[in-house]
Amino acid sequence: MGMANLVLVYGMRLLPADEVVKVGSAPVELQNGNEAHVTMHVLEGSREEIEAQLKLSVDAFFDFYPEI
């Protein structure tokens, strides 16, 4: 039996660090009528620092799902 086809939901936007006050979750409507929420993450720093943090975050995310 194979793994189900998966969807990775994410969003990115660069904003001035001193302008961000609050970050919430993003709703995702599911085909069965239920709603899921995507936790938003904030990475701050230079381009290189953000890229490195993003890579670590993605790697850590998939560590939660070793069966994939």
Score class of each variant (00 low, 15 high):
residue 2 G to V: 03
residue 2 G to I: 01
residue 4 A to C: 05
residue 5 N to K: 12
residue 6 L to F: 09
residue 6 L to P: 00
residue 6 L to Y: 08
residue 7 V to M: 09
residue 8 L to F: 12
residue 8 L to V: 10
residue 10 Y to M: 04
residue 10 Y to R: 02
residue 10 Y to I: 00
residue 10 Y to W: 06
residue 10 Y to Q: 01
residue 12 M to G: 02
residue 13 R to P: 00
residue 13 R to L: 11
residue 14 L to V: 13
residue 15 L to Y: 06
residue 16 P to E: 03
residue 16 P to T: 02
residue 18 D to N: 14
residue 19 E to V: 10
residue 19 E to H: 04
residue 20 V to Q: 04
residue 22 K to L: 07
residue 23 V to Q: 12
residue 23 V to M: 13
residue 23 V to F: 08
residue 23 V to L: 15
residue 23 V to G: 11
residue 24 G to I: 04
residue 25 S to G: 14
residue 26 A to Q: 12
residue 26 A to G: 07
residue 28 V to Y: 08
residue 30 L to E: 10
residue 30 L to D: 05
residue 34 N to S: 05
residue 35 E to I: 11
residue 36 A to T: 03
residue 36 A to I: 02
residue 37 H to P: 00
residue 38 V to T: 14
residue 38 V to R: 11
residue 38 V to Y: 12
residue 39 T to P: 04
residue 42 V to K: 13
residue 43 L to T: 01
residue 43 L to C: 07
residue 45 G to P: 02
residue 45 G to N: 07
residue 46 S to R: 02
residue 47 R to D: 06
residue 51 E to A: 11
residue 52 A to L: 09
residue 52 A to E: 12
residue 54 L to G: 00
residue 55 K to F: 10
residue 55 K to Q: 15
residue 58 V to F: 09
residue 61 F to E: 02
residue 62 F to A: 05
residue 63 D to R: 12
residue 63 D to Y: 03
residue 64 F to C: 12
residue 67 E to Q: 15
